[in-house]
Design a protein around this nucleic acid. Structure first.
Length: 284
DNA sequence: CTCCAGGTGCTGG
DNA sequence: CCAGCACATGGA
């Protein structure tokens, strides 16, 4: 019968200044992984997809469909003109930013789920990126929902846990995940969201300062983590997280004289170019 | 085996 | 306000 015929579920999106490899290696998301040459897996929106990019910069998303287009366009921030910023930086007098923007011209700020970003960056503190990724996968395997991919039922994946699922855990359960001293922070943050003391949905419409203030009331959430949540979870593009790498740039390249202020609502993107460049520039 | 990581909280100046 | 330090753990 015709209806039994298998149809590949896929979606094509196209944009300049979008490079899957750069985004996957950018340290803003922890569940996008290269599974074979140029092919990436990703769990987002509670679904597993695989991503491919061809020579014409067209992105193919396997495992989703046309009706999800708006969701993916928002995820990859397709409405924003990153090319204009890359061009602006390429013409500015700042040699370091010139090189950084050219080097990471395919970076974008993804719009991820705020709760996932919050928990992920609480875990991130004092860990390197491979360790962050494995800790998050463990958390998902333990508290997320087990699913099988629509395109290949042999492929098992786990969604990122809901606030309720983590909040219902006991301290002992979390301790076995090897999160170290961060396990209490994760538990408390999940409980705050689950019990409504922290209204992440409501924060979406709030301004940057208010978001920062609310997030930093949580134990284990300082300025850096709060900035990451504001930038990657709430898409506040003025937010510029300063981690050890960025601090090193500000200190050694700019000798402490750098200011984010001139970049306004592009500071977060500028920060991302800096971060990607300083962590990868030695390779080229 | 050592070193250090997309930090934070706490303490003492 | 700022420097110094403990913190649990795993990847390199």
């Amino acid at each position: 019968m015709m209806t039994d015929k298998r149809v590949d579920i896929r979606l094509y999106i196209k944009s300049e200044n979008l490079n899957l490899k750069q985004i996957a290696e950018s340290g803003q998301c922890f569940r996008m992984n290269e599974i074979s040459d140029g092919r990436y897996s990703l769990v987002a929106f509670g679904e597993y997809v695989e991503l491919l990019q061809n020579e014409e910069n067209e992105i193919r998303i396997l495992g989703t469909s046309e009706d999800q287009r708006p969701q993916w366009e928002e995820y990859f921030d397709l409405h924003y003109d990153y090319g204009a910023l890359v061009k602006k930086l390429s013409e500015c007098g700042d040699e370091f930013l010139k090189k950084a923007a050219a080097f990471g011209s395919g970076l974008r700020i993804l719009s991820q789920d705020p709760f996932e970003v919050l928990i992920s960056f609480i875990i991130s503190q004092n860990k390197n990126i491979p360790a962050i990724k494995s800790a998050i996968e463990k958390l998902c395997e333990r508290f997320g929902e087990k699913k099988r991919w629509s395109e290949n039922p042999d492929l098992v994946y786990y969604t990122f846990p809901s606030p309720a699922n983590i909040a219902a855990a006991k301290k002992e359960d979390l301790r076995t995940l090897g999160l170290g001293y961060r396990d209490e922070y994760v538990l408390e943050a999940a409980r705050a969201v689950f019990e409504g003391r922290l209204d992440l949905h409501g924060l979406k419409s709030m301004n940057y300062e208010h978001i920062m203030e609310e997030l930093m009331r949580l134990r284990g959430v300082g300025k850096k983590v709060a900035n990451c949540v504001a930038l990657f979870g709430f898409h506040k593009l003025r937010s510029a997280p300063v981690d050890v790498w960025i601090a090193r740039v500000l200190d050694q390249v700019y000798e402490g004289r750098f200011s984010w202020e001139p970049y306004g609502d592009q500071a977060g993107i500028v920060q991302q170019y800096m971060f990607y460049y300083i962590r990868n520039c030695s390779q080229s």
